Amino acid sequence: MYEKQRKMIGLMKEILQEDYLHLQVHSYTLNEDLDKGSVDISCRLSDQQDDKFEVTGGGVGVIDALFDGLKKRMADDYPSLESIRFSEFSIEGLISSDDSPDVATQAEAVATVGILNSENKEFQFEAKAPSVSRAGIEATIQAAEYFVNSERTYVKLHEILEHYRSEGRTDLVEKYTDLMSKVVQNTSYSEVVEQIRKEMR
């Protein structure tokens, strides 16, 4: 993951506190149609409040299918997800240096998932796991977390900014305007801004 992304995650956690979304994968099932070249996935997840939900999607591969499912499941609440798209997936196998006869069971896969934002800027997310599909799924979940938390942070900063603006705190207005300018580099929030305007009418 890029250093800039790590710093952004730190900012999002600082602003959101307990509202920072963390997703955990519990199980998944795959159905691959080799003739059609398509994959369907059903993935069981939970958030930081341990609320469990299921994501289903389809695509040309496991990661594409899961990315499709996550967007369909979450884009109504987080419209900025519609401005990002899956761009690449790579996998690297790691073999343990251990001389144990069970070395094959200790092998791991490292998956890297690329996401393009509304300005065609690429973000990369990486996960390590005992299987290729699990590593890819966990990297894709990281991507969803990142952009959902980014939108949550944008909305929270907007609320804070409006509060200090109404109080005439120009020093803090400047501070939170600067923070919003950093978050908005992640992707477009045009639909989010429109929703905020409607709620303020």
Rank of each mutant, 00 (worst) to 15 (best):
F125K: 02
E145N: 04
I41V: 13
A144Y: 00
L45M: 03
P130Y: 04
S87C: 06
D102C: 03
E122W: 05
V184S: 15
G10P: 04
V62G: 02
D99F: 06
L179I: 06
N149A: 09
L157A: 09
Y164L: 14
L16V: 02
V155D: 03
I196Y: 02
K121Y: 12
E126S: 12
E92Y: 15
R197E: 09
D171H: 10
A111N: 06
S87I: 11
G93S: 05
E14P: 03
D76S: 11
I196K: 03
G37S: 13
F147C: 11
K198E: 13
Y189S: 08
R6K: 14
L81N: 04
P79L: 09
V25R: 01
R85G: 09
R73Y: 11
S96G: 15
V193H: 12
S188P: 01
A135D: 05
T140I: 00
F67T: 02
N31I: 04
T56S: 15
Q106K: 15
Q5F: 08
A135N: 05
F125V: 00
Y164K: 06
E82T: 09
F125M: 09
R85I: 10
I9C: 13
Y189D: 07
G93P: 04
G61R: 05
T105E: 12
T187R: 05
E122V: 10
K156F: 00
D77H: 11
Y20W: 12
Y28C: 00
L16D: 11
L172T: 12
S190Y: 07
F53K: 08
L34P: 02
S96H: 13
L30P: 01
L66S: 02
T187K: 07
G114R: 04
D76E: 07
G37A: 10
F67L: 03
L66C: 01
K128E: 07
R165V: 07
A65N: 01
V39A: 06
N186A: 09
K36D: 10
E3N: 14
I15S: 07
E14R: 12
V55W: 00
E145R: 08
E138C: 07
L157T: 08
P101F: 06
Q142A: 05
I115E: 01
E119Y: 11
M12K: 11
K156Y: 02
A139N: 02
L179V: 04
D171Q: 10
Y2Q: 09
T29L: 07
N117A: 12
A107V: 02
E162S: 13
Q17K: 13
Y189M: 14
D50T: 06
V55L: 03
G37Y: 12
M180L: 13
E122K: 09
F89Q: 01
N31F: 09
R44E: 11
Y78V: 01
S42L: 06
D40T: 13
E191P: 04
H26R: 02
E194M: 14
E82N: 14
V60C: 07
R201F: 05
